[in-house]
Write a protein that binds this DNA or RNA. Structure first.
Lengths: 169, 169
DNA sequence: GGTAGATGTTTGCACAAACAAATACTTCCG
DNA sequence: CGGAAGTATTTGTTTGTGCAAACATCTACC
C-alpha cells in the first residue's frame, strides 16, 4: 500500500523545488500566523486552536488527551497551555466525572466570547497568508494529500540504524 | 494586485477543510521530520538546513544574515545554532574580510561529510512523510503557491488595532 | 579626520514545548 | 478485599527560540 523499499531515489527537480518551498513555509508560516494573531487578538495559534476545538465539542468541553490530539501538542504542553488559559479565565478545568484521574477542559462563556472576537482576525490571517495564495490549486486533492501525511507515524518507529542516540547531544 | 479589503468572507467548506488539514501538518510535520532526522542522523532539521545551504554556497560559506534568511530563523537563533554546530566541528565562524562587524559561517570538511551521511536519512523522511503523499498533486503549481506565501510579510505590519500588546501576556 | 547614525551580530531574558519521572486514580485478578 | 498493572495527567528539567538591548564596526557628512 505504501512504498516500503529502503532505497530512495533522489528528488526530481520538481519535487526538490516543492520540498524547498514547503520547508520554508513549514518554518515561516506558523511563526507569521502566530505573531499576527497574537498581536491582533492576544491569542497564540495554539490558544486559538484550543478554544476552537472546545467550542465545537459537546458541552464545550473535552478530555485533556482528546484535546492534545486535536491540537497536536504534547500532554505536558497542553497542561501548561490550559494552565495559562485558565489564568485568563478562558477555560476551566474540572475533574472528569466518570474517571477520577482525568480532567476536562471547559470553555468558559468569556472564552467563547473572546474566541468570537478573535475569529475575524484569524480568518483574515488565513485568507491573506494562505488562501489567497492557493488560487488555482485543487483544494480537495490538496486536503486529501495533507490529511494523509501525518495520520500515523509508524515510519518514525524503530526502523533505523542500531546505535542511534536518543538525545540531541 | 492582492485582495486588500478589510472584510473577509468566511471560508468555504473546501477552504475550511484545506486549512484544517494544513494547520495540522504545519504543527505535526516539522516535529516528525525533526525527530526522525535527529534520531537517524543526529541532526535537527535546522542543523541540516544550515549545513545544506552552506554546502551549496561559494566557498561553502555564507554571511550570518544571508544564512538566517535562507534557514528562516532569527539572527539570535542562528547565532546559537551556529554556536552549537561549531562545538561539533561541523562549521567554523570566521570574521568577514570586507566588513569587520560581520561573521561568516563556513562548512568544515567534517561538516560536509556528516551532511552527506545524513542526506539519505533526510531524503527518506521527505519521501515517506511528504512526497509519497503528493501523488497526483500538480507540483509546479503547488510550489508556486507555497513560494508566494511568505515572501513578504507586509500584512503583518502595523495594521492592527491600537492597543495591541507586544508580549504574550 | 571626527563624530552621528546606520548596520551586522551577539547577549540578556523570558517563555513555550518536549521528554522523562512522578502522581493519582482505575481496573483486573486471585 | 487487596494488591499489581495500566492509564490520564501533571511536574521537573532542559532546550531552542524570539524580542529587545548591547556591542562593534562601518559610512557619511561637516
Amino acid at each position: 500500500m505504501r512504498a516500503d523499499e529502503s532505497d530512495f531515489q533522489p528528488l526530481t527537480p520538481d519535487e526538490e523545488a516543492a520540498w524547498r518551498a514547503l520547508a520554508r513555509v513549514l518554518v515561516a508560516l506558523p511563526r507569521a500566523m502566530d505573531a499576527d494573531l497574537l498581536r491582533r487578538a492576544q491569542l497564540s495559534l495554539s490558544d486559538y486552536r484550543v478554544l476552537m476545538f472546545l467550542s465545537e465539542a459537546p458541552d464545550r468541553s473535552l478530555r485533556m488527551s482528546e484535546l492534545a490530539d486535536l491540537v497536536q501538542i504534547s500532554f505536558s504542553g497542553l497542561t501548561r497551555l490550559i494552565e495559562r488559559l485558565e489564568r485568563r479565565d478562558l477555560v476551566e478545568r474540572v475533574k472528569a466525572d466518570t474517571d477520577g484521574r482525568g480532567s476536562r477542559a471547559v470553555l468558559t462563556g468569556f472564552g467563547l466570547e473572546r474566541l468570537r472576537e478573535a475569529w475575524p482576525d484569524h480568518l483574515r490571517g488565513v485568507r491573506l497568508m494562505v488562501m489567497d495564495h492557493l488560487r488555482g490549486i485543487d483544494l480537495p486533492a490538496l486536503t486529501e494529500a495533507l490529511n494523509s501525511m501525518i495520520v500515523k507515524n509508524d515510519m518514525v518507529g524503530p526502523t533505523g540504524r542500531p546505535g542511534a542516540r536518543p538525545s540531541r547531544d
